[in-house]
Write a protein that binds this DNA or RNA. Sequence first.
DNA 1: TTGCTCCTCACGTCACGTGAGGTGGC
DNA 2: TTGCTCCTCACGTCACGTGAGGTGGC
Lengths: 150, 150
Amino acid sequence: MTPAATEERSLRIGEVAKRADTTTRTVRYYEEIGLLPGSAERTQGEHRAFTEADVVRLKEILRFRDLLGLSLEQLKDLVEAEDARALLRAEFRRTEDSATRRRILDEALGHIERQLDLVRARKAELEGLEEELVSKRRRVRARQRELRDS
Amino acid sequence: MTPAATEERSLRIGEVAKRADTTTRTVRYYEEIGLLPGSAERTQGEHRAFTEADVVRLKEILRFRDLLGLSLEQLKDLVEAEDARALLRAEFRRTEDSATRRRILDEALGHIERQLDLVRARKAELEGLEEELVSKRRRVRARQRELRDS
DNA sequence: TTGCTCCTCACGTCACGTGAGGTGGC
DNA sequence: TTGCTCCTCACGTCACGTGAGGTGGC
């Protein structure tokens, strides 16, 4: 039974960094400040081991960092919220109680909507900038036509 | 004749920072690295004087920094390109030669289009993220309906 | 065994934040 | 004259970059 046949484990830091399109330094730093798990029982000098899930998480962090310009402190809040959601999902699967299930789904929805608000606010700002550039371009093109028709 | 009646001059740094929604430290730093003009003939300890045009420029810089995540080095290139364009606009008004005018308009158009490319690339990334969030939300909502209808 | 990747300091850098101590204009 | 804002160092901070010197796994 290969490791891939059970659960995928033990990616090395270089591989993780490459897949997330970042550097090993960034991965170590994120571990240091608690943004990435940091394989708890690791003795001094031992190599770090990551999972496929860590790569997904890292990619998500980088995306929010780059696209929304969040600080690592803010990203930590976001990641903690994701972790809380993961726990809730596990609870969701364990329970049959529909009141509990409803509450968990409500929280998930709220979380997603807060993220959507951030993303859409940014998009709106970018669209404002885009429109300004487009009308600038329209004015230049109008002058080009004037020149051609004179 | 008030100063406002001629050309608006001599804004103080605190006023500039407030209008651009930033800090005086940032304004000084941008002057230091050459991103803002820095009233050439100013003797040691003398107060900085800015114009309305400086505020516009600063706001533009901050917008590109925040929305596109450019480094100050990259913003410097952008600002230099803007300055070059300002010179060209002046030349445009001085000349009657339509070949020269055509060339200037072509350059202006190219500049605007490069900026538009950056803005649209960012917007596309944000839209990718938005779509992912929207389908996540759809899935949560579907489960809520399942729960309600059971 | 030989590379290649990994490890831990630790100092450097970019883009400012934050006082400390002093001077200048309504 | 009294505040308020301005000035110049200069050290601190956040988010890493970049070696230095050494160890570990295919």
